[in-house]
């Protein structure tokens, strides 16, 4: 059964309360949201295996802190989509603005279009697949998880990176401090294969290059002071 909630006639508070209650009840319900018209904080804080489809574009922090829920945006999203996501799947059919998946701890963020700057900033275990291109400063201080980009990456990819893995199929405009290209080993092919399949991406793992931390900034060293 699908319940439709119209954001043009229903207050955001009521929409989120309804979704949060359904998720908490682990009801496996389906919801459809109409007329988001760029509204902020839509479908945030869900904690349970419900499915939400948003027909249109959203504003800031759509699907923020998601747990277990499957959220699909049939449109584009504003800054900070799926920020601090814990688990579940968030799919964006259009483009994502800056900070997509910021500080995410888990789950899959699947962006069918492009993501702009700071995608995966400070990510802590989330998997992000971007079918298009990504902007500058993506995966800044990224700690854990995988960022897969089928298109090109902008400037300063992976600056001050920790242990997150970055896979880019296209070109990389520039690498950030301490980020280097690394060998694509069989275990990485496996990770990629799995993520590409989950994301429904038409690409071969072997086409990607892997980037990661050279770990030179892990402990202060005066000879690398210029990179701080």
């Amino acid at each position: 059964m699908t319940t439709t909630l119209d954001l043009a006639t229903t207050e955001l508070r009521e929409v989120n309360t309804t979704l949060q209650a359904a998720a908490k009840g682990k009801a496996n319900e389906d919801f459809e949201l109409t007329n988001p018209r760029g509204a902020h904080a839509v479908a945030v804080g869900l904690d349970g295996p419900i499915s939400v489809t948003i027909n249109g574009s959203t504003g800031y922090y759509c699907a923020g802190m998601n747990k277990e829920a499957t959220i699909t945006v049939k449109g584009s999203t504003g800054p900070g989509v799926a920020e601090n996501m814990m688990s579940g799947v968030v799919t964006i059919e259009g483009d994502a603005s800056q900070y997509a998946g910021a500080t995410g701890h888990g789950g899959l963020l699947n962006i069918k279009g492009n993501a702009s700057s700071r995608c995966g900033i400070s990510m802590k275990g989330i998997d992000i697949v971007v079918h298009g291109n990504i902007g500058h400063m993506c995966a800044f201080m990224a700690q854990k998880g995988n960022l897969v980009v089928l298109g090109d990456a902008g400037d300063a990819l992976g600056d001050s990176l920790y242990e997150a893995r970055l896979f880019v199929r296209g070109s990389v405009k520039s690498l950030g401090a301490d980020c280097v290209e690394k060998e694509l080993r069989p275990e990485h092919i496996e990770i990629l294969k799995d993520l590409l399949e989950k994301a429904g991406a038409d690409a071969k793992p072997e086409e990607f290059k892997r980037y990661g931390s050279s770990r030179k900034l892990y402990n202060f060293n005066i000879d690398h002071a210029g990179e701080y």
Binding site: L12, R13, N16, T17, Q20, H40, A41, V44, G45, G59, Y60, Y61, G64, M65, G80, E83
Partner: peptide, 12 residues
């Protein structure tokens, strides 16, 4: 907007 999100997650 960040405050709005945090309030929505924690039921105000």
């Amino acid at each position: 907007i960040k405050i709005l999100e945090l309030r929505e997650i924690t039921n105000w």
